[in-house]
């Protein structure tokens, strides 16, 4: 196993060689092929990649929320404040979830209970984790709704989820997630289902609340624009592995992995002027059911040479606090 210097004080979450498999009837899907990264206290870490790259599986593996029958984390460690979450009992793990690590999902309608009022659900979370009395928890629920800038919080606590708009429900989810002052908030595509004007409001809210509460945020998204506006550091995932890791400024200024570069170029960007043709990444994402020999991006990569098809590249330094898993990262950065 890769040995690293012992976790420093400012490291909140330290994920090492995390490996998760999904089991089908005849096949095993290697959804996470051993990923390592850290989240520091109070920072916002972006996790970017396209469907099936393993970004959501990473979140679910950390919180141990994978479907029990079909998926298992088969290797690695998830150290949160020094403790390996994978070793905890179910009971201990339940205390970590919501209290120390909270999560918000893409679709707030499916993660809110339709038969209880929003205020009840926030108060319930507060009561479970803080043993607060009912009136105290109810007051806290109202305070949280005010914090996430829902107008009329004294009336809205009595609303059921269906009585709220999509943007308001996502605000309520954020209120619930932050009610117990978690140290880490995992946000999985929290604005993907929202309209752009509402998305801008919610992103602003997350950034403001993060600054005010000091909560670290792991922001999972497919949208490079969202990453640029919210994150300090970014990891880019492809086919179950991290292919690049950098500060947001470095990543956008000098992408070192051909996949990151391709991704950035294929996003319509107004600042490049109006082009009629977008640069595309040819081909499709490989199946994770078959073992991959060499670099998983090689079949789609304009830089691929023989070594790429034979040997799997590992993350290596290509700049200060900038790593990439590419044999030809230097050439890629110069291109």
């Amino acid at each position: 196993m890769l040995m690293r210097e012992s976790a420093k004080d400012d490291v909140l979450l330290d994920v090492r060689d995390l490996e998760t498999h999904f089991y089908g009837e005849e096949s095993v899907t290697r959804a996470l092929g051993g990923i390592s990264f850290q989240v520091k206290k109070g920072e916002t870490l972006g996790v970017v990649g396209e469907s099936g790259c393993g970004k959501s599986v990473t979140a679910l593996s950390i919180l141990r929320l994978l479907p029990k029958l079909t998926a298992r984390t088969v290797g690695g460690e998830v150290r949160f404040r020094g403790r390996d979450l994978l070793e905890l009992s179910d009971r201990e793990m339940r205390k970590v979830r919501g209290d120390q690590i909270a999560m918000i999902f893409q679709d707030p309608m499916t993660s809110l209970n339709p038969v209880y009022t929003v205020g009840h659900q926030i108060a319930e979370a507060v009561q479970i984790h803080t043993k607060a009395s009912h009136p105290v928890a109810a007051a806290k629920a109202e305070e949280m709704l005010r914090l996430v800038r829902i107008a009329d919080p004294e009336r809205r606590v009595n609303n059921y989820p269906h009585e709220m708009s999509g943007g308001m429900r996502q605000r309520a989810m954020i209120a619930m997630a932050l009610a117990c002052s978690p140290e880490l908030l995992i946000a999985d595509e929290p604005t993907t289902a929202l309209d752009v004007t509402i998305q801008a409001q919610i992103l602003r809210l997350i950034v403001d609340l993060k600054e005010r509460t000091g909560t670290a945020v792991m922001f999972i998204t497919h949208d490079l624009g969202v990453v640029a506006e919210t994150c300090q550091r970014v990891i880019v995932m492809y086919a179950g592995r991290i292919v690049e890791q950098a500060s947001v400024i470095d990543l956008f200024a000098r992408p070192a992995h051909p996949y990151t570069q391709g991704l950035m170029r294929s996003v319509p960007d107004r600042r490049r002027g109006r082009q009629r043709r977008l640069p595309e990444i040819p081909g499709i994402v490989p199946s994770l059911r078959e073992p991959i020999v060499g670099c998983s991006f090689a079949p789609r990569c304009p830089f691929a040479i023989d070594i790429c098809r034979d040997k799997t590249p590992v993350l290596r330094d290509v700049g200060s606090s900038h790593t990439a898993a590419c044999w030809r990262a230097e050439e890629v950065m110069g291109a």
Partner: peptide, 25 residues
């Protein structure tokens, strides 16, 4: 104008000063 300003821009050096439009449709 609000719609154009609300779209996230893939450039971390660009800083959004305020939310382009409040409220909902």
């Amino acid at each position: 104008e609000a719609l154009l300003a609300a779209a996230p821009v893939p450039d971390p050096t660009r800083i959004r000063l305020q939310v382009p439009v409040d409220g909902e449709m």
